[in-house]
Structure formats: C-alpha cells, structure tokens
Amino acid sequence: MQIIAKGLNFVYNKKTKFSVKALDNVDLTIDEGDFFGIIGHTGSGKSTFIQHLNALVPVQEGVLKVGDYDLSANAKKDKKALKTLRSKVGMVFQYPEYQLFEDTVFKDVAFGFSNFFPQASKRETADAVYEALSLVGLDPEKYAERSPFDLSGGQKRRVAIAGVIVTRPEILVLDEPVAGLDPKGKRELMKLLRTLHEKESKTIIIVSHDMDEVAENCNKVAVFSEGKIVRKGTPKDVFSDAEEIKKLRLDLPLTGYLCQTLKSKGVNVDCDLTEEDFIRKIQEIKRG
C-alpha cells in the first residue's frame, strides 16, 4: 500500500483563541516497502501526521490516500472500510506498554485480532497470537499465559507491538519505538523492525529523535518543522546540509558528523551514513 498526502492542513482547537496549526500544506509520498523515518523537533507536527494515516485524526483539509482508502477531507466515510484500514495500518504509540490491560499476554495480544476479525475461530486467533509473539521474539509457550504486568519494560513493549502486528498490517507506524529502552533493548527492537521490514516485507514508518537510528535503518527521511515538511529524501540528502539541520534544532547522525569533520580536514567520505558503509568507505580510503 502506498501513502499519498497532498496539501494536508490541520489546526487544533479550531476557531478558539488557543488554535494551533499542526500541519501546514504537507505533501508526502511513502512507497510500499519503504523504511521511512520522520524526524523533527517536538511539536513539529510529526505525531499529528502519523495519526492521520489510520484516521485517528480526521483530515481537515487536503488529500490523503492510503492504498485504496481515500481519507481525504471530502471523501465519503465508511465505517467498515475504516476498520479494514486500521487493521492494515498498525499504529504503535509512544510507550505502547502503557496500553496493556488484560490479565494474560495471550488475551492482550488477541484484543486487536478479535476486534478486527470477530468471526475468527479460536484456532485462527491462537495461530495469529502465537505468530505475532514469535515475530517479536517472545516464546509463545513461555509467555502467552503470563500477566503482561509482570514482564520487564522491554518485554512489555514487545507484547504491545505484538498486539498491533497480530492483525498482519501491511504498514506499521511507530512513534518513538525505542524511547526509554536500555541500549540492548533498543538494538533488539530495531533488529525486530528490520526483520519485519525485510522478511515480512512490511512498510515501516518510524518517528524518531535518534538520528543514528534513522540514518542506520531508513531508506527515506522527511523532516518536519512547524507543521511543514522542510526536507525529504535519502538520509544522505537530508543530512547533507549540517547548518540547516542545526537550524532545525536537530542533530547529525554520528556517521554524518564524522563525515563532516573529516571533510573539513580534507578527507571526503562519500557514504550513505550507515555504519557499515562508513567503515567500508574509510577502509577503501585507507587502502588508497
């Protein structure tokens, strides 16, 4: 499913003196199979934008198409189609472990599945839940009957993500997926997302404050600032102008920073900002 947004505008608290413009004429295309990064300073409209993608925030003005679903401001709303859309576009909020509520991991993960497929048999539900738990790296035999509240923070988050991917969405949107995790938890979760992207060929969209994460994983990036998209393209393009990135109150990824420093010393490293490529290019330069 491809996502096409054209001229999206959104204002919070419309027509009151507290009104805030959250999206300002946003144009963006996210292709099927993208690992898309959305970055920007706090309050730049990122969260508002991603919540448009499965109609949690209704489009006020502009065109938005997600696959065959037309979410545009003037399009006809169909409740049944909306449910299908939400099962196809999985949304993982910030700190998703705070949404767990059932007494067993199994029931919590099954919540989304039963909501979207009320006709599914017990067997089908169990299969989907076990599949989702295995995908997030939790052994279903071991965890299914445990209480989600007894798990560690990282495990809780995995359960919450399993609760979203249980419906087998084609697009997975994650708002700050690794916030608050320890370094090991971060690495594991990013690895999980890469697996979902490569092996399950899901389109992944992440909102992140961690530029390294974005440079390392995303093939495309969009930078939000004050509701507008100010830059978009490959990480290399987006992070090419260090001055502008600084002006947007963002950082360069570590690789980008190194490239920039080396360039000022007269060494030009032309890499795509992933660690692997950076090291390869450095080795090439060393060899001459």
Binding site: Q51, L56, G90, F93, Q99, N115
Partner: peptide
Amino acid sequence: EETDRIIRAQKARGGD
C-alpha cells in the same frame, strides 16, 4: 491527556 492517548491506542487496535 493520558486517557486520550489510551483511547487512541485502543482505537488503533480496533477498539470500539
């Protein structure tokens, strides 16, 4: 605010 966020999260999981 938290309620609002939880409602959205459960809606995204098909909560009605």
